[in-house]
Design a protein around this nucleic acid. Structure first.
Lengths: 368, 368
DNA sequence: CTGAAAGCGCTTACAG
DNA sequence: CTGAAAGCGCTTACAG
């Protein structure tokens, strides 16, 4: 078991200290040790407790004192030690991002968004990919949060849909925010996008082009996003007096390969659908391949819409019309929620994704 | 200036404590407070210093004592507090990943790799995207490393090529490992892939198919990877008695759009190249678009090879032949280096990427 | 091989 | 509004 790191064993009369591996540069900062709260206190002529009050923005401090201390802090470029603060606070200034998601762009964008919110604060982001199928999954995330005394945790879908996990987190007093697609928790604990509305936009668009026979590739049934998108799509078609018959709905796994397989199925139906909505871009890319193999040209013979607006979308030939998920905004809001910097009222400004129209859709050859 | 977080101001006679935002679950762990080194010491009937010795794998401890303490640690599921340890060590157990790179897959994979190495240890990964064009760039990364007392830093390209940054890091005693393409630092500080050799494989392949007139899209001249790939390609052609005339080399920016533009240029040359090597997949995708617009079919009229083997490659139509960069391995090695768990000898087992042959190359229509 | 004391850099009660 | 004391959970010298 590789466990805690092991500093060099000390030899009795060694020079003083021995650096681990990259010996050469293992020197203290030029100026000796870093400056601490005690230095600031001395320099400002106050107690360290007063400096602490300034750092923590306590209102119990005279403005004159505050600004004087603040000036010294800035002049000396003093940065409080997060570990010492954390130890005293009994909580760290670390935010965890927990995910089990194959979409790299999604992860990077939400990290970026969270960091947008954290910039200029003392918080940092610790990444924690995991495998939610692992029987130890919940226990290990719990240990992670507990050991690090995390300030809070951002749960990305589909991990965010795991109630057992959130129960554990609540039990150890760790805040969390779930990134998801509906009200699956108290409002303060969810940053949700309204996929149902977004998908309606896609359906309306296809109908407006004249499509009447449409295929639908859903996400895996365990995912909330899959359900939301499918419901939204059905409802929208119904509003136009259209139906989505069972043979024209197939369940994929949000992967490219499943997209190919689902499209193969859908395109073998008679009448053949003139348009296919895939519940994410990956699967939409699979539809391209299937259509290509069958000799169908896009968009003349088949219109396609995806969901995500990932890097793939613009690069497909023809470029893919898809629904853009504002992932970075989502990440930012989740982090704001955690550090209490949320400006928005939770229920207001719901994040609703929008359709990005490109070149993968056209009127069907023969209407009806 | 939003700075340090502010805990609730305390009211004089308040109940005891007031939770910040998500009040409800703000309880202590069921069992009261977490268990500490003192508890273990008492339970094992030794001093806390002895427990500390066990944690730090000190050799100065009798095996009997060690295993007895270890048993208590495991029974109680004791996890030492990293903040307290870090405070005493004057260094945290955090590894930073610093990058300024648009390739999401690259970032996620290297994070994943680093985490592979960190799993089971007490180290955690803190992400730090940044903008290397920002004049404050070096100073802000330095502050990041300094404030967090980072154990070490992983530098991803092209940030890894910035010597001013590494000088600063060395100055504050922060270890680093550069992920790069050549020996731009002492061996222990570099995890490099041999792109030159990898690209040779691609060139050989094109030549073996019969291509004689080949276009080359390079990366931006400031990047080490760009230089390595270009040099490797030229050399390989020379070995076959072929040349890469200036008009057939154009410099791109590693972006999709630049790929389109470069391909437009190359495909206007006469004689028109029968194959194009793009220095990354993004630009290769751009070549597809350009070829498509000109009515050239791939691979019949034009063979294309990319570099990265990102998610795009397999999804292109036809699927892209490209060079696979073992990013996850790279990330793992970098992290191992930092925590001193490196098994390999630096210079041995150089990571060399390999060609993944798919459907984007064929013999040219008319040889020569 | 083991331990008692002091300290890492902050904050929490508690006084004033 | 301000401060002196004690403590957060570990480790470093220093003794033995």
């Amino acid at each position: 078991m590789k466990s805690v790191p092991k500093p060099e064993p000390k030899r009795s009369r060694a020079p003083r200290k021995k650096a681990a591996k990259p010996a050469a540069t293992e020197v203290e900062a030029k100026s000796g040790r870093a400056i601490t709260i005690n230095d600031i206190a001395r320099l400002a002529g106050v107690s360290k407790k007063t400096v602490s009050r300034v750092l923590n923005q306590s209102p119990l401090i005279r403005e004159g004192t505050r600004s004087r201390v603040q000036a010294v802090i800035e002049r000396e470029k003093y940065q409080p030690d997060p570990q010492a603060r954390g130890l005293a606070f009994r909580r760290s200034f670390l935010i965890g991002v927990v995910y089990d998601n194959p979409n790299a762009q999604y992860i990077v964008n939400s990290q970026q968004g969270a960091l947008d919110a954290l910039r200029g604060t003392d918080f940092e982001l610790v990444v924690h990919p995991c495998d939610r199928r692992n029987p130890q999954f919940v226990a290990s995330v719990r240990k992670f949060a507990e050991r690090l005394k995390l300030w809070g945790v951002i749960l990305l879908p589909p991990v965010s849909e795991n109630n057992e996990l959130t129960r554990e987190l609540a039990a150890i007093g760790c805040r969390y925010v779930r990134v998801s697609y509906g009200p699956l928790d108290t409002p303060e604990r969810v940053v949700a996008t309204n996929d149902r509305v977004a998908v309606r936009e896609a359906a309306d668009y296809l109908v407006s082009l004249g499509h009447r026979c449409i295929g639908f590739i859903s996400g895996p049934s365990g995912y909330m996003s899959a359900g939301e998108r499918r419901t939204g799509f059905s409802e929208a078609l119904q509003a136009h007096g259209l139906r989505l018959p069972a043979p024209y709905i197939v369940e994929g796994g949000y992967t490219y390969d499943s997209g190919v397989a689902c499209a193969n199925l859908l395109l073998s139906r008679r009448p053949r659908p003139t348009a296919i909505f895939a519940s994410n871009d990956e699967m939409a890319a699979g539809v391209y391949r299937s259509a290509h193999k069958l000799g169908l040209s896009i968009p003349e013979d088949l219109s396609i819409i995806g969901f995500d607006d990932g890097p793939l979308a613009e690069r497909m030939l023809p470029s893919l019309t898809t629904v853009r998920l504002p992932i970075r905004d989502i990440g930012r809001r989740a982090a704001e929620r955690l550090i209490g910097a949320a400006i928005e009222t939770p229920s207001l400004n719901p994040l609703v994704p929008h359709l990005v129209v490109r070149d993968s859709c056209a009127r069907p050859r023969k209407s009806g």
